[in-house]
Design a protein around this nucleic acid. Structure first.
Lengths: 172, 172
DNA sequence: TGCAATTCGTCAGTATACTGACGATTATCG
DNA sequence: CGATAATCGTCAGTATACTGACGAATTGCA
């Protein structure tokens, strides 16, 4: 196999160290790892974490429209179109024009979608377990608690905040 | 202002609850929040978190090539091309063909790039502070520690793992 | 009722990621 | 040295995000 040091001259050996320990950088990497673990565990089912989340939410909220779905799972309104389009292409959901509001599309899960949710469950659980595997039980619990706390209190800081169901849209 | 409940019928009120508390889902949201906070704080500088990370790493490792840069900051080799292209377009770095290895491109930071790194520092620090603001000092420290631990031990699970400088590329 | 303000889904444009593959180049070993 | 393996940067294709904007539809209020 070919080998050689790759252009790194160690000019400022710990110049990156601060960067590499920044929460933002670590969060980005943890996201990538978490995403990759899901794809790996759920390979046989051909869905992404994002598609899985949308599918579960549609299953829990039959007839939900796209914007409301975004509020439930904290997605961006612009992104969801493509996601549900892919779920539709895979026959996991149906998308029909809203009856009462013709601007909306009503989303319903299909039998195949329900089957997938049921069958993929072990892989989903395994993924969550693997993500936090490096921590012991006590740390794991604390980490999950802090994650929830961070996401809740920082909710408003992304374009896709979580919004309570049936709630009045707040001012910007 | 127009208002109406948005198609959500609360059919299975807590059907989403398990989903919304999954580490994977929370990590995705925290990533989005962290990214948005950075863009917001560093708006005046016109760089993304990813571009900032690359710039800092190039500054610390003059002449580094793209693949080695990927190993330092755990990026994907396919993605880095676009990132450094944008940095180059903004005159923050230079990219020249490698002298010893003509396959590579040697990356160097420019004066403007150094200036940006210096001037953006307060915004970067503010971002890190804001991300973890909901936690108290003790939690913050524990969270950072666990983040590092999770990322280190799960390192191999993404396509873009961190790799030690000048190290032998391991087998797959 | 009629009009202004909102909302829904979408579009174009940009940026980050990853898969699988490729030509060009370099390293390794027989 | 020469053949083979490995590596570098990149490409095409797909998926997730976000900005800003828009037409169509709905709501709220004068």
């Amino acid at each position: 196999m070919a080998r050689r040091e790759t252009g790194t001259d160690m000019h400022k050996p710990d110049g990156d160290k601060r960067l590499l320990e920044m929460p933002g950088h670590l969060i980005r990497r943890l996201h990538q790892i978490s995403f990759a673990l899901f794809l790996d565990q759920a390979r046989a089912f051909g869905v992404t974490p994002v598609q899985y989340a949308a599918l579960v939410a549609i299953n829990s909220n039959p007839g939900i429209d796209q914007t409301a779905l975004c509020n439930v799972i904290a997605f961006d309104r612009t992104t969801i179109g493509g996601v549900v389009g892919r779920l539709q292409r895979k026959k996991l959901i149906t998308r029909v024009n809203g009856a009462h509001d013709r601007r909306t599309k009503a989303l319903h899960i299909s039998a195949a979608g329900r089957r997938l949710i049921r069958d993929i469950e072990p892989a989903v659980q395994a993924t969550q377990r693997l993500i936090l595997a490096p921590l012991d039980a006590r740390e794991r619990s604390a980490f999950k608690q802090m994650l929830k706390h961070l996401v809740h209190l920082n909710n408003a800081h992304s374009r896709a905040p979580w919004r309570p169901k049936r709630a009045r849209r707040g001012r910007a």
